[in-house]
């Protein structure tokens, strides 16, 4: 936890630095009609840096041996996160519906070891229902890929 705390605090302090940097560009003064664009961000950023420095020293002084995540914990977390990232990346190429079908099917088979028939049924029906609800019913367009283009959407 100690290391994670130190890293997070440093990272957030850097973020604060960025904010202050941009605020200076915008002007941090108090004009005739109230604060300029950069006034609030400047102080928010400055305070953030100060708070992160405090956390950094609090954490540095504390001898906390527990790790941020154990190896046993990391496994399942990655097993959720990695396919989710892959799913989102796939949307760029295949559109949302096809990606959702592949993702759902893959996940059910890989983690749940469900029977192929169940896998197929859910992986096809769920994106199909989503498609009908969003594209047909609510007319909210989602990202679409080659399959939808081929089908005329």
């Amino acid at each position: 936890m100690r290391l994670a705390d130190l890293v997070t605090a440093s990272f957030l302090a850097l973020l604060g630095g960025l904010v202050v940097f941009d605020a200076v560009r915008l002007g941090t003064g108090w004009g005739t009609d109230g604060p300029q664009s950069g006034f609030l961000p400047f102080w928010l950023g400055a305070l953030l840096i100060a708070a992160c420095v405090t956390i950094f020293f609090q954490a540095a002084r504390r001898a906390d041996g527990t790790p941020f995540v154990t190896r046993q914990q990391l496994g399942p977390v990655l097993k959720v996160l990695a396919p989710a990232v892959a799913f989102v990346a796939l949307i760029h190429w295949l559109g949302l519906y096809v990606s959702a079908a592949l993702y759902t099917g893959f996940y059910m088979r890989w983690i749940g070891r469900h029977a192929w028939l169940t896998v197929l049924a859910v992986a096809v029906l769920f994106p199909l229902v989503t498609f009908l609800v969003f594209e047909k019913w609510f007319l909210v367009p989602m990202p679409k890929g080659p399959l939808e283009a081929w089908l005329g959407h």
Partner: peptide
């Protein structure tokens, strides 16, 4: 609903919801 079905469904619904706000990837 079993975990291996519910998880991808939730993730997909979240993705759909996030996209719907501004139609932005």
């Amino acid at each position: 609903i079993p975990f291996a079905i519910l998880t991808p469904v939730i993730v997909v619904v979240c993705a759909v919801g996030s996209y719907a706000v501004h139609s932005s990837m």
